[in-house]
Computed example of a mutant assay.
Amino acid sequence: MKTILLKANDIDLDKASQLLSDGELVAIPTETVYGLAADASNISAINKIFEVKKRPQSHPLILHLRSIDQLNDWAIDIPSDVHNLAKHFWPGPMSLLLKKHPDVLSEITGGSDKICIRIPNHPVTLSLLTILNKGIVAPSANLFGRVSPTSAQHVLDDLDGKISAILDGGQCEVGLESTIIDLTEIKPKILRPGGLPIAHIEEVIDKKILPHSNSDEKISGNLLNHYQPRASVHPYEKSEIEHLINDMPINKSVLLLLSDINKNNIHIHQMPKDAYQYGQVFYSTLRLMDDKKYEKIYIELPPEKSEWYAIHDRIKKASFKI
């Protein structure tokens, strides 16, 4: 199979829509990461996602819609918080876990009676969804468990020859996956921190929400080992960095730093001190370090503050050893 690169124009959007209608897989841009899209009503196409990504079929997929007007076709018993949150954060990096409509394919939800839904905030994909006039499922467009793609080139690096097309929408603006909020119980829960800060959610629903990092709920990205580059990842507290530098292997190792430290004898890559900017470049930096053939990536852990929670989550999973 030859993977074609499509541009963000009317002709190529029509091509992408036709491919999806024909049961093919198309990588699409979102504000978070690139997704591997399939028609959410096509079992064969959905199964291709699991095959191409080498993703366990028990691991649910996130449904992408163009409008909240389509929500009743996919979910039932929709709580009032949904419309309040949607008013503020859709389109955007927020996914809501809801009770699924009986007609939703079990292949999407991994056999669960719940479904995760979002409306992506990317003009190219919103246009595609309008043309297609269907829901699509779209996990990250990479091999399962590896670093998520934030550019069309990243997708090509992982899936060239394995999918029909990549719709190039430029670099992803947010760079981290969506925040997943469980609204199937009386009290909302954060199941996956992401591109939407928890503090913003709490302001809108006027409720305190605690992240549930140990939740056994079946959702995307809840495995302990995830988002992993080829290089091994080793996180360190700021207080440990100076000692680390003295003992750090030189040739095939790199240190991702927040602190301003200059050392001529080791490889240093300076990371943004702002949490949002850090999230924008985190995955692309891990991929860059792989491209440079580093075998070990040492990371200075960011502050223990709420705005850094998603970054801590990704570093923890990127560094988890089975």
Rank of each mutant, 00 (worst) to 15 (best):
Q70Y: 14
T30S: 12
N246E: 14
L98A: 04
E217S: 05
E237Y: 11
K189F: 06
D73G: 12
G221P: 01
K162F: 12
Y283Q: 11
L191K: 00
A27W: 02
D291R: 14
A40E: 01
E107V: 11
N9W: 06
L98I: 01
I163G: 02
L36A: 04
G92R: 07
K162P: 04
A199C: 04
I131T: 12
S259D: 12
S21Y: 11
G35Y: 00
D291E: 14
A86W: 10
T179L: 04
L196R: 03
H154C: 03
K48V: 07
R314Q: 00
Y34P: 07
T179I: 04
I268T: 05
L105S: 13
L183V: 01
D10V: 00
V52K: 06
D290T: 01
V155N: 05
L105I: 14
V82W: 07
A199V: 10
H59Q: 13
H269E: 11
T3N: 11
P149Q: 02
Y294D: 02
I136T: 05
Q280I: 10
T179W: 04
P303E: 05
I205M: 10
G194R: 13
A86K: 09
E177S: 06
D69G: 12
D22R: 10
P123F: 14
N142M: 02
D158G: 02
K187P: 00
K187D: 12
S164V: 00
E295H: 01
N265H: 14
E202L: 09
P272V: 11
F320C: 05
G194A: 09
T150W: 05
H234D: 05
K100M: 01
K7E: 12
S67I: 06
H234T: 03
V174Y: 00
W308N: 01
N265C: 06
D14F: 00
K208G: 00
G110Q: 11
Q18F: 12
R314E: 01
D77G: 00
S127Y: 09
L143G: 04
K53V: 01
S259K: 06
L126V: 03
C116Q: 06
K134F: 09
C172S: 09
I49M: 11
G135I: 09
L288R: 08
